[in-house]
């Protein structure tokens, strides 16, 4: 029932990622009367206030009560509505987890959770407001689809796709502006399908969210200065994961680096590692992200650099990985 939205880079260049989400959801709500929005005193912070201006009677600010919000969303979904919760990632995946688990995921309800200020993007607010475990937590929930868009336009695509999917969806977005990765919305976004942004044969950088732009920058620099041909995959859907694209990368490039603004435990890197381990094909592998640590505070870009998930960090790891004496045997048959 969700109809079309189509934005250009020019139309959205002055909008933060959350503002694009709010615009997309409002435009789609015009076409689908089932959509309602809930927030927990975060209408301004998550930018969803514009929805309230356009649809005041379809907007519910439940106050500072996330657990209650997810329970209410569950009940509303049971009435045939499509509730979107607009809340910080840390308060979705941690504060409201029991409710997300039991009231939404277990009952497989059509609730869409938009989790903003994810990773270290709320950098200066402090570590209590970072969300660096949510991918690991959320992807362990059965029935739940987990999407980490790379920029505003991908967020618009994710919101549209989430409406078309009957079931719970978690969409993890950043505070503020993301660097632009996609030059339009029409690049074949599909839940569960990685987007190959650059092709290469020496290694594959698999990234999500704010790591994707950095991966592309690193790949360009590596090609220019080192002659290293890196493939870049935007793995926007963490679950269901694109096993095919990952195994193709293993077979064809034999080296994998994952990049995420999240702990290396259980998130994108963990998910990719599981696929590789069960794939039966050896490859060199590194996970970039928070190394089992809480983040210090600072500006988002400084924290990306600190955690070595910016272009420089990726380049450094790539060079180290390329130097490894890794078996370059092309006979896969003996390794199954």
């Amino acid at each position: 029932m969700a109809g079309g939205i189509s934005y250009t880079v020019d139309e959205t260049t002055k909008l933060s990622t959350a503002e694009v989400y709010a615009k997309a959801l409002s435009d789609l709500a015009l076409q689908d009367p089932r959509i309602v929005v809930l927030t927990s005193d975060l209408a301004k912070s998550t930018k969803i206030g514009v929805f309230e201006e356009r649809f005041p009677d379809r907007f519910y600010n439940v106050g500072i009560a996330e657990q209650n919000m997810f329970g209410i969303a569950s009940g509303m979904a049971k009435c045939g509505l499509i509730p979107f919760t607009s809340c910080f990632a840390v308060f979705t995946a941690c504060r409201g987890l029991d409710q997300v688990h039991t009231d939404i995921c277990y009952q497989n309800l059509n609730v869409k959770m938009i989790a903003s200020h994810a990773g270290t993007s709320f950098g200066q607010a402090g570590t209590t407001h970072h969300s660096t475990e949510d991918i690991a937590i959320m992807r362990s929930m059965a029935n739940l689809t987990v999407i980490v868009p790379a920029d505003g336009l991908e967020t618009a695509n994710a919101v549209k796709a989430a409406i078309e999917l009957n079931g719970p969806v978690y969409i993890r977005i950043n505070r503020g502006f993301d660097q632009i990765v996609n030059d339009g919305m029409d690049y074949g976004f599909q839940i569960g399908k990685a987007v190959q942004l650059m092709d290469g044969t020496d290694l594959t950088i698999i990234a999500c969210g704010s790591g994707v732009f950095q991966a592309v920058q690193a790949a360009r620099e590596l090609a220019f200065s080192d002659g290293i041909k890196a493939r870049v995959l935007n793995l926007h859907t963490i679950k269901p994961i694109d096993r095919e694209a990952i195994m193709k990368a293993v077979q064809e490039t034999r080296r994998i680096i994952t990049v995420e603004d999240h702990t290396i435990i259980g998130g994108l890197g963990g998910a990719v590692a599981e696929i590789i381990a069960e794939g039966g094909k050896a490859c060199a592998f590194r996970r970039l992200g928070l190394q089992d640590a809480f983040s210090p505070i600072g500006l988002h870009e400084d924290l990306m650099s600190y955690h070595k998930i910016d272009a420089n960090g990726i380049i450094e790891t790539t060079r180290a990985l390329m130097k490894l004496d890794f078996e370059e045997d092309d006979n896969w048959e003996d390794e199954v």
């Binding site: 209410i72 569950s74 009940g75 509303m76 979904a77 009435c79 509730p83 009231d103």
Partner: peptide, 9 residues
């Protein structure tokens, strides 16, 4: 909370 959601829905 779920009942509130149902009643509201």
């Amino acid at each position: 909370s779920i009942a509130v959601g149902m009643a509201l829905g």
